[in-house]
């Protein structure tokens, strides 16, 4: 075992770490989920309260105030809010995860990737656990879930890659520049409002619409809406576009992380 050979193929090494430490990642993700609400009376239910409150506010705003006539608007909203919450929380929590990890980075032999992955994993679990609520809403508003749902695992995988790439990049950067964690909060909120999650595509001016779809997460949100709201197969160019961009983002983000990770223990 020699430590000072630079990792030539960092992506392959990254996947090896993911496979080798999959059980630890799973256990740490569960730990996050368990400790998040332990001691509170409602427990995991709090994970559902936040999106439900948002839902009420936006429904009031868009249906009552702006007279939006779209059918089953709350379902549309939920399709986007839930995965975006996964995406946003993962990035926010991951960004400070390495700089706050303490002895987990400076005094243990586990690769730091594991820490970031467990943050994304716990937020993914949160998301998956909220799917029953979404399905409940779909049936309350007399929509249907059809065959397009077979795309769901693929879209999850794409979102995971995208989230992981961005999270790893910012987690590494935040070790050296602690300002990042404060920027991220504003950035993810901005991205949230810039995308058709609470409003519809057609409400955007046509010129702006092209700009919005430069954003890879907008494609992903589109796919989630296609599957659960429109009940149609996600358009293949959205899926393909999102896949290609996610793979690139993951490779870039992880390459930076791998390049910097040997310095983490000195700077935290």
């Amino acid at each position: 075992m020699s430590h000072n050979n630079s990792s030539k193929n960092s992506i392959a090494e990254g996947f090896n770490i993911l496979i080798k430490y999959r059980y630890l990642i799973w256990v740490l993700s569960l730990k996050e989920l368990k400790t998040q609400y332990r001691g509170s009376y409602l427990g995991f239910f709090w994970s559902l309260v936040n999106p439900l409150l948002l839902l009420i506010i936006y429904t009031f705003l868009f249906v009552v105030v702006f007279h939006n006539t779209a059918k089953a608007y709350p379902v549309y909203l939920f399709c986007g809010i839930l995965p975006y919450t996964w995406f946003q929380n993962s990035i926010i929590i991951s960004t400070s995860s390495i700089s706050n990890a303490g002895s987990l980075v400076s005094k243990s032999l586990i690769p730091p990737e594991v820490i970031v992955m467990s943050k994304i994993g716990s937020n993914l679990l949160n998301y998956l656990l909220s799917i029953p609520i979404l399905i409940l809403f779909i049936y309350i508003f007399k929509l249907r879930i059809g065959l397009p749902v077979i795309y769901f695992p693929l879209i999850i995988a794409i979102t995971f890659l995208l989230t992981a790439g961005i999270s790893l990049f910012f987690a590494a950067l935040n070790v050296f520049y602690r300002d990042i964690q404060f920027i991220i909060l504003n950035l993810t909120t901005f991205i949230y409002f810039s995308m058709p999650i609470m409003y519809f595509d057609k409400q955007l001016p046509i010129k702006l619409r092209h700009i919005i779809y430069l954003d890879p997460i907008a494609y992903v949100m589109k796919c989630f809406q296609d599957i659960f709201y429109y009940n149609i197969f996600p358009r293949y160019y959205y899926v393909a576009g999102a896949l290609v961009v996610s793979v690139i983002v993951f490779m870039l983000g992880y390459s930076y992380f791998a390049l910097r990770k040997e310095l983490f223990s000195e700077f935290i």
Partner: peptide
């Protein structure tokens, strides 16, 4: 391998574990 040396070489033959601290990852709520 937690830290990188500025210069020099290290070789370790076989698997390595380290007890640099007790109770790493302990969480009070668990």
């Amino acid at each position: 391998g937690i830290m990188k040396p500025t210069t020099g070489r290290i070789a370790v033959n076989g698997s390595l574990s380290a007890l640099l601290e007790l109770g790493t990852g302990f969480h009070p709520e668990l």
